[in-house]
Amino acid sequence: MAGNMNITLKVWRQKNAHTKGKLVSYDAKDVSPDMSFLEMIDEVNEVLIKKGDEPIAFDHDCREGICGMCSMVIDGRPHGPKEGITTCQLHMRSFKDGDTITIEPWRAKGFPVVKDLVVDRSAFDRIIQAGGYISVNTGVTIDANAIAISKQDSDKAFDAATCIGCGACVAACKNASAMLFLSAKVSQLSLLPQGHPERMSRVENMLQQMEDEGFGNCSNTGACSVECPKEIGQEHIARLNREFIAAKASSENV
């Protein structure tokens, strides 16, 4: 069709976690500008399957920007050149005919490559396991309206809670730090009164887990917030720092 593009892809191909990978070039032909980025790769994969080659493995699921599964570094930027969206929300009209696009997986010690563009993000689950919850069992009978929470706090908590756990913050950070992810959860639960009983142990344990997973240290470059598809701000990291200082200064975990 008129207006369709031909694009060259350079994609990171890696058989599995134990082998070395490399960039391999593919032609994406007759790409419609209305295609999403992932649909463009779908089409490349259909060609590969028919040739009997292995299609490019990549994580994706909801394709509407909310599940947090898609994870590609496109021309050096997690989730591609546009801000405030995930890879699945990126459309080919953001590119030009004849472009060469390099696609790499999230790079971090904490996110080892499983295959091609697929990485293992179970470290994020383990960080949540270390304390990213409020310890209530099913069967709570306190009426939901028993505690009033100021709209301001509840809105701020919500801003933090919008984190989809995609890991773009780690991928963007020059130190591969997971501070934005961590801070989103700590911030959410420290802004809500329900989260207060455990706030000290939560921040201490979650931070410890982040370090144990091999993520780097935050140096406040702010890259994470820029690349975050949900645009979670740096103020949450500041709040995490405050929570940590308060916890270390006053918790009874000696």
């Binding site: 570094v73 021309d75 050096g76 390099t102 020059k174 470059t221 820029v226």
Partner: peptide, 26 residues
């Protein structure tokens, strides 16, 4: 420690899109 957190780097880097030069070159 931070260098160890990313044992394999990116082939294409575009830090300028999301952070200041000085923050990346402290």
């Amino acid at each position: 420690q931070n260098a160890k957190a990313r044992p394999i780097g990116y082939q294409v880097k575009k830090g300028s899109a999301n952070s200041t030069w000085s923050s990346r070159n402290m």
